[in-house]
């Protein structure tokens, strides 16, 4: 393999990392506070739609990303209110969000133009940074930056301490004077915003289009990445990269004539999932989750 190929795979992996890691660090924030949102896939999908519409309507890629963030935040708010104030089941809400998004995005695409597909003009896509060895999306840098920031906030600030306290022992946090549900709601919104950004990245940056199945399971992969990372945003960066790497690698090597003769492409396509499973089972093993994860907090 030539050097150029290695750069190529590197860039594919980095670009594939972005949505998974963004969604995963968002989920990390809310899981740290005790909320488990299985509806990431749905938020990604809605974010992708909002991003495309926002970018095109405003004529600016940044506004598209903002639209994704806003939409994600809104769904995060819905999820947060249902699972804190209304003490609803987080799992059911998450599944509902996924199903709603699947229908809603396809419906909107049908109603707003061509069914199933909407492209984002090149001019309002996120411009790439040409590096000579390949093009880098600035969103890769944003993702790395956000992962570091989230890590810093969660591990090295008062706010992070509060968030983790609310997740570990909501009663203790309450007694210490924290507003448990408000904090949780805040993390749900933040998580939604990050997932929405991840979704908008798909349409406004990575693919330059939104389709009704654009997420292709990446929200679920992000959930797996959270477990893989053990709620560490920096490891989520690594997890997203590894998954992106193997996914890119699988597609990449399936174009190589020599390899195709040895292994059927279907087995190459399985590889990222098998490897993720093995990594989670082998290297990481048991992950300690916050004690209050998934349980609504009720004072009396």
């Amino acid at each position: 393999m030539e050097l150029a190929h290695i750069w190529g795979i590197l860039f594919i992996s980095l670009h594939a990392m972005v949505p998974i890691t963004l969604a995963a660090i968002g989920e990390t924030i809310e899981e740290s506070a005790g909320l488990f949102n299985i509806g990431l896939e749905g938020i990604l999908l809605l974010g992708a739609l909002a991003g495309a519409i926002g970018a095109e309507a405003s004529g600016s890629a940044t506004m598209g990303l903002m639209a994704g963030i806003a939409t994600g935040g809104l769904i995060g708010l819905l999820f947060g209110v249902l699972s804190t104030t209304l003490r609803g089941s987080q799992l059911i809400t998450g599944v509902g969000i996924n199903m709603f998004a699947l229908g809603f995005v396809a419906l909107m695409l049908t109603l707003l133009g061509a069914p199933g597909f909407h492209s984002v003009p090149r001019a309002v896509q996120v411009p790439l940074i040409p590096l000579g060895i390949g093009n880098l999306s600035p969103m890769v840098l944003v993702t790395v930056f956000l992962a570091v920031v989230v890590w810093w906030v969660l591990r090295r600030t008062q706010l992070g301490l509060w968030i983790r306290a609310v997740g570990e022992n909501p009663a203790a946090a309450d007694v210490a004077g924290l507003r448990v549900n408000t904090l949780r709601l805040g993390t749900a919104i933040a998580a939604g915003m990050l997932a929405g950004l991840a979704g908008a990245y798909l349409s406004v940056d990575w693919f330059g289009a939104v389709t009704k199945e654009i997420t292709a399971g990446r929200g679920f992969i992000a959930l797996a990445t959270v477990v893989f990372s053990g709620l560490n945003p920096l490891l989520a960066l690594l997890g997203g990269f590894i998954f992106g790497l193997f996914e890119g690698l699988a597609t990449w090597i399936s174009t190589y004539p020599a390899i195709k003769k040895i292994i059927p492409w279907q087995f190459v396509a399985m590889a990222p999932y098998i490897i993720t499973l093995l990594v989670v089972a082998g290297a990481i093993g048991r992950v300690r989750f916050p004690k209050g994860l998934g349980v609504p907090y009720l004072r009396e």
């Binding site: 594939a16 990449w252 174009t255």
Partner: peptide
């Protein structure tokens, strides 16, 4: 250079495959 991606929906696979082919 040819590949069956196994999907008619996951755009990422089309993009990755094409990138691989261009690099080759």
């Amino acid at each position: 250079l040819w590949t069956y991606t196994g999907t008619f929906s996951d755009i990422a696979k089309g993009k990755a495959a094409t990138e691989a082919m261009l690099a080759q």
